[in-house]
Each structure stands twice: as C-alpha cells, then as structure tokens.
Simulated assay, not measured.
Amino acid sequence: MASVGPYGVRPGHALITMVEPHPGHEHAYNRWYEDDHYIAGAMAMPWIYAGRRWVATRDLQLLRYPAESAVAQPVTAGCYLSTYWITEGRYGEHMRWTVAINKRLNRDGRVYRDRTHIFTSFQDHQATVYRDGAAGPRDHHALDHPYRGLVLQVIDAAGPAERAELLEWLRARHLPGRLKDSPAAMVTVFRPTPLPVDRMSYVKQVEGTDTRLTLLWFLEEDPRERWEACFTGLTEAVAEPGLGRTELVAPFIPTIPGTDTYADQLR
C-alpha cells in the first residue's frame, strides 16, 4: 500500500463517533475504549494519522440544543465523542481494513456491548475556515493541538440540491463572521458517507448522506466560558437564509488519557 497512491497530510476524511455508555457502565466503557479500542479499533489502522477523544459532562450535556434533535434523542445522549483524521484519498483502503479488523475484534470478544452509537459515521472533508488566517495550527494539527474544547454542530440542508449552497454560505459568509473574536480557532466541515453493507450490526446506517453537514469547532478555551455569547443562536442563524436546519449543537472537553476523569460526572 505504501508504494503507490496518495500520502499527503490533509484530513481528507474523518471518523466521527458519538457514543452513550449504558448507565452503570461509564467507567468500564471508558477503560475499554481507551485501553483497547482506541488503538486496536482505530489508531493502529493504516491511514488514520490523528485521533482525539472528548467528553460531555452533565452540565455540558444540558447546554445542547435543539431539544427536538434528529441526531440525538434525548438531546443529551452521547457522552463521549471520538474524532479521527484519515489521509485524503485513502478512505476505501482504510474502510476495507476497518471492517475486517472489527469483525476480528468481535469474534475475539473485544467489543464492548453496553453502549449505544448515537452518531457514528465516516465523513469527507469539505472545508476548513480559520479565525486567524495563516496564523496558528492548520486543520491537520487540530487533533494534536491542545485545544480545550470542541463543539459538534450538525446541519441538515433543505434538500440534496441545497447542500452545496449551504456549504458555500457557511464557508464564505456565516463561519468567518462567527469565528471573529470567538474562542474557536477553526471550524472543519465534513459530509457523511454511507457505511458499507458489511458493517458491524451494532452500528446503524448513516442518515442524511445527501443532505447533512458536520461541523467541528475547535476551541482555545472551555466551551462553558463564553457559551451564551458565542454558541447560542446557531439554530436561528442557519434557518434565516432558508438553507437548512441545525439538528445538534453539542459542546465537549477533551478526555485526559489514562484516567477515568469525568466518568463520574456524566449523569
């Protein structure tokens, strides 16, 4: 695989997975995911070159909106978020590998069952918008740079034909204005791709592959510090031009690797 094909540094694709451990299984899930699955089920695979885990404590969950979300019901579901960058142009090869290794992990009893996938999909990179122009980390640094928070925003365009118009409005008009003087250094924009038919049965097929956009806001401060000033009103802002509907705005903070910090603050 290494002798031919793309081998750049751009995050051409991402795996974004938001999961809810079942009540009473928070610590066990966290240890399984961090000690085993984060590595064997993701980082050890070809063409994944960066990853980071995030957590929403109960107070962060209660900041989420809209209440009637097409992504999470209830809107507080999904305490843990994992994000991974995949080398541009290597999605197909990576997908064949990940399906095979996850089938093996399942056979070997290394898949934790007491969890629910709330929002899990592979996604293609569409745009990155920076607050400070050429200054600061690039998008391929985003999962390695010590950002203090992340906001996941999911938007459904009015229809397949409107998604391109929505993307251009976000890239050229909406995001530059929202980023100015905000704690977010950049926003990456992705669109989901369908999961293969031979995916693991516990992961549901991706919805909105022809209409949805996923935004990751990378924050230089805790999202709680300026939530009201900077991250409320995104539903109205997207609805105003009539291009789509915001289905989720959800803040997270980074986990602390090797610890169960925050696992007792999820309920």
Rank of each mutant, 00 (worst) to 15 (best):
L15I: 14
Q205D: 15
V249W: 10
P46W: 14
T211N: 03
H174P: 00
A72D: 09
M95H: 11
R224E: 09
K103V: 04
S121E: 13
R131W: 05
G5H: 10
M18H: 04
T83L: 12
D264T: 01
I101S: 07
T209C: 11
Y80N: 04
T17N: 09
D198M: 02
H13V: 05
A185R: 10
Y29I: 12
E220P: 00
L15C: 12
P192K: 06
L152V: 10
L195C: 09
F218Q: 09
P160V: 08
V55R: 02
S82A: 13
A135L: 06
G89H: 02
G89P: 13
F119N: 11
D114L: 12
D35R: 06
R173T: 15
Y91R: 06
L15D: 04
L179H: 10
S82F: 09
A185D: 15
T98Q: 09
A135Y: 05
T211M: 00
T246L: 15
P223W: 03
E247P: 01
R245K: 14
T255F: 02
D132A: 07
A158M: 02
W32F: 13
V197A: 11
V203Y: 07
A172R: 15
K204E: 14
A42L: 10
R110W: 05
Q73W: 15
R10K: 07
V189E: 01
A142W: 07
T98I: 02
P196L: 11
E225Q: 09
L167E: 06
T188M: 05
F218M: 06
D156P: 07
R224D: 09
H117P: 12
R96L: 15
R224F: 02
E93Q: 14
F119C: 10
Q205M: 11
L167I: 08
V197G: 03
Y130E: 05
A67M: 08
G78F: 03
T211L: 07
Y202H: 10
A158N: 02
L213I: 13
M43Y: 02
R96S: 12
Y91V: 01
M1R: 14
A77W: 12
Y84Q: 06
A127D: 07
L215V: 09
G92C: 13
P196F: 13
